[in-house]
């Protein structure tokens, strides 16, 4: 499904750009292209590539025309078909890449109704790192039973990447039916309802749906043994998780927090942890600039099963 980084960029990302940014990227070096995680277009600023903790400003000042051309391609010349997605702030394109947009929006009855003029565009390139979950999965099983698990990490440490790979492994290798409530199209990268990233052969995805409703729909309609959702943290999630657990379904999820301690201080997370919903907590942290597994703890006690690279 996914090729090498260069091929992904050449085949899926470059055709999304207007003529000048595309030429500028084609002329750029292969090395930075291979590292690229985000491509940013801002009017009157140079074209920016970010990736691997580095920045590269390309020698091209983006103008309004470039933004317009890129938007024409992204929306397939059809604002009407993408108005709803644009009001949410992003479009998911073939290949599972997410394109974030900012600019002038119109508001109707207190809700964003549409994006009328595009300011900046941020293309986030979907990269699937297969196998990152292999080292984690054994810690989440107890006597062959998958435990309710929450993954903690600061932004950019690979929460979503790890969750996606765990979903794939549980679906393909453990052989459980997995339901994914993918509110922001990040886990499965759905394009027209079809996952563009590999989330396994026993996986059903509800795309673009509010998490709590998505979870309930999955349990009601798809008969999952495991459900997964990214970045929980609001009050409605609490009830949704409760309902899912009441149905005897295992929950996998992630949350923003540097470590267990910080998680215990967050209003909603604190409640989630205190209720004893989860049996496992996984903490990720950057080590030498690379996201890595930091801790696995048994909940609710918080007894460490794994720390750094040694077993406890």
């Amino acid at each position: 499904m996914m090729g090498s980084p260069q091929n992904i960029i050449k085949g899926q990302v470059l055709p999304l750009l207007g003529r000048r940014p595309r030429q500028a990227l084609e002329a750029a070096e292969g090395e930075i292209i291979a590292l690229a995680e985000e491509i940013r277009l801002r009017p009157n600023q140079a074209l920016l590539i970010q990736g691997g903790g580095r920045e590269l400003w390309l020698p091209l000042t983006v103008n309004a025309e470039d933004i317009l051309e890129t938007m024409n391609i992204l929306s397939q010349y059809s604002y009407y078909a993408f108005a709803e997605q644009l009001a949410r702030g992003y479009i998911t394109v073939a290949g599972g890449h997410r394109v974030g947009v900012a600019g002038r929006v119109t508001v109707n009855r207190g809700k964003v109704a549409g994006l009328v003029e595009t300011g900046s565009i941020n293309i986030r390139i979907a990269r699937q790192l297969k196998g990152v979950g292999k080292a984690v999965l054994p810690w989440l099983l107890e006597q062959g039973q998958l435990q309710n698990t929450i993954i903690f990490a600061p932004p950019g440490c690979g929460k979503t990447t790890l969750l996606r790979d765990l979903i794939r492994l549980i679906s393909d290798e453990v052989g459980l039916t997995v339901g994914v409530a993918d509110e922001r199209s990040e886990l499965a990268g759905c394009y027209r309802g079809i996952p563009q990233l590999d989330v396994g052969c026993r996986t059903d995805v509800i795309d673009g749906c509010p998490r709590d409703q998505g979870l309930e729909m999955l349990v009601r309609s798809m008969g999952p043994q495991v459900v997964a959702a990214d970045e929980i943290g609001c009050r409605s999630d609490l009830r949704a998780v409760e309902n899912v657990l009441a149905a005897g379904v295992v929950v996998l999820t992630t949350a923003h927090a540097r470590d267990m301690q910080e998680a215990r201080q967050r209003p909603v997370l604190r409640n989630l942890l205190a209720e004893g919903f989860f049996q496992r907590a996984v903490v990720l942290r950057r080590r030498g600039g690379v996201p890595a597994l930091a801790e696995v703890a048994e909940l609710p006690a918080g007894k460490l099963l794994y720390r750094g690279d040694r077993q406890c």
Partner: peptide, 10 residues
């Protein structure tokens, strides 16, 4: 023509 317009207008 639109299919190969590379973003140029309708």
């Amino acid at each position: 023509v639109l299919a190969r317009a590379q973003g140029r207008s309708v």
